[in-house]
Design a protein around this nucleic acid. Structure first.
Lengths: 342, 342
DNA sequence: TTGTAAGCGTTATCAG
DNA sequence: CTGATAACGCTTACAA
């Protein structure tokens, strides 16, 4: 059915060995130019496609990497994967993509399958819901001897490579920007304390306030997780204060946008025109005119994949945590104090 | 290193055959319950993970499907992939995801790799830029005997399974909706004539007008491709007419949103408040309050994958084109005539 | 009821 | 410079 090495060999009147040598450009051994030419010609004519399964069985390498993500719904995650794709294409690696649907059990099952497929390595993008089970996943990978890089969480930086963005610095930039616009009453819509990224952003917020000698008030930190309902409620409360915030720093653009959707019309109108800087710079952030801290997720993905390939090449390197720079994208929502509704 | 069948067999004091029989639940042959129990226990204890490569080499099946997409940047595409994931998970299939970066050559190369990896089938989400080379891709797949399902294009419905959404009907719904709001001067921001979906949407637009006895005017159809620059220019022209449109039907929400970004401020302000119905219902469509035709891309992905599995099971079925229903999501931008700027 | 042996397509080794 | 042979890990006839 499918053309095999042996078929090409017979047709070209040589042995399978020779075919293999020619097609894999083994320059270590000298091949008669005429033989080489003939084999190549025959292989092309017959449409020979080497069976990578067989090769992998022998070599122990599949040129295949597993990617575990919470879900593709987030365009942030999608861009990370896009970055991986790009880098993978350049190294002839294929990506086996699996999403966990935010479910640790699904994640475990999917990883098991990836290992049975003998992936050469695994890239894990952590999500809030699968964070707790991450140590278990890492343990399994270590036992299987399969290298791994974690994206967006550095709580296991001692054991495993990770790639994150400079969240604390990004948050500090955002809040400092608002301060420079004259704001003093700046609230923070937080992503909670479950993820290290959310914690870092809160920490950056506090640092920026401190540097400007603005006292930190815990009541002005809203939101305990990336959940929309909680965020909306918290915003509602802030807006209704006698002296409401004049500006907001949101730990996540999507959280901000969706929370606004869930508000009462009056509050929603207020916040749509509020001074705000968000985080993650989704594509819609531009459409909404929201200033945002951009992490260039593609770069995260690319860096993670490159790191994984290095790790596969040199398993003995000490684990390393890469922190990629972020940059602030200024848009309409960067309003000076006093220019917008409260 | 990695535990093999043979290791388990030795440890359990049986032959590899027995291990295989037990772990694959071959009920055709009777196994001593005691043997069965012991083998299972030993396999679990040793952490045995069957090597799917070896199994595939023998069986000719890899439980692996190739997915070719233009790019993950589009959340529409991302959702299609998400749907596939969901369905794949339920059938123990893994997805090898590759993006073409809108480049036919990359697509060709990626598909070649997928075939070398012996995927059991391929799912192709067409993009404007890779549409021209689709016949060539299909030819290669046919020659390789690898089943395939095309999503979002039905120009090859006779040769190959395809899954699309009811674009003409969706467009008709959208425009009829605007007509019911009292509009008569309705423009269409088109995706051009390159893709069958864009053509269908234009055709639905015309049909809705016709049913309402509103004469069709080709000057009111703007945009010749999904390119932003072209769209912006066309919109600018329409807005500047002495009697501009009172409503717009956009072939794509993203195209609309990005075109508006590129307009001069005055025109942008006008269009941000215009009566408009878009298409594809991106997540940001909700944030912007744009009414939109929703194709439930997840369903597309799920249906496509299911179809592919059926096709793999029964290669002889005649090719079929599935048209999935769409539904109109009404939001703020559904303004009655006269209520909005021009 | 279980074991032996062959073979899937490839490449590494070594002999010629 | 090229060919024979074995081996990767698994499943499956067939034999015991």
């Amino acid at each position: 059915m499918r053309v095999r090495n042996l078929d090409v060999a017979r047709e070209a009147g040589v042995s399978p060995t020779t075919v293999s040598l020619v097609l894999n450009d083994r320059t270590q051994v000298a091949l008669a130019p005429e033989t080489k030419r003939r084999v190549q010609e025959v292989a092309a004519r017959m449409g020979y496609r080497p069976n990578l399964l067989a090769r992998s069985l022998l070599s122990g390498r599949t040129q295949t990497l597993g990617v575990i993500i919470p879900s593709l719904s987030s365009s942030y995650v999608a861009r990370i994967v896009e970055g991986m794709q790009e880098e993978a294409g350049d190294s002839n690696q294929q990506l086996l993509l699996t999403d966990t649907r935010h479910d640790p059990e699904t994640e475990a099952a999917q990883m098991e399958l990836l290992l049975r497929h003998s992936v050469d390595g695994v890239l894990i993008v952590t999500g809030e819901s699968t964070l707790r089970s991450l140590p278990e996943r890492l343990r399994v990978l270590r036992e299987a001897g399969v290298p791994c890089v974690v994206i967006d969480d550095q709580s296991h930086a001692e054991q495993v490579d990770c790639v994150v963005s400079q969240d604390r610095i990004g948050a500090e930039m955002a809040v400092t920007h608002l301060i420079e616009l004259g704001h003093r009453r700046i609230a923070h819509l937080s992503g909670g304390s479950g993820t290290s990224t959310a914690r870092d952003r809160l920490s950056g917020y506090r640092r920026a306030l401190k540097r400007a000698s603005i006292p930190f008030q815990s009541e002005w930190v809203a939101g305990r997780s990336f959940s929309v309902a909680a965020a909306a409620q918290a915003l509602e409360a802030l807006v209704s204060l006698p002296k409401p915030p004049t500006a907001y720093f949101a730990a996540n653009d999507r959280l901000w946008a969706e929370a606004i959707q869930a508000l009462r019309p009056r509050s929603a109108r207020l916040l749509r025109n509020a001074a705000v800087v968000g985080y993650a710079n989704y594509d819609f952030s531009a459409y909404l005119g929201i200033s945002s801290v951009d992490q260039s997720p593609q770069s995260l993905g690319k860096a993670a994949l490159r790191r994984l390939l290095d790790r596969i090449e040199t398993p003995s390197m000490p684990p390393q945590c890469l922190e990629l720079p972020v940059n602030l994208v200024v848009r309409n929502s960067s309003k000076p104090v006093g220019s917008s509704a409260p």
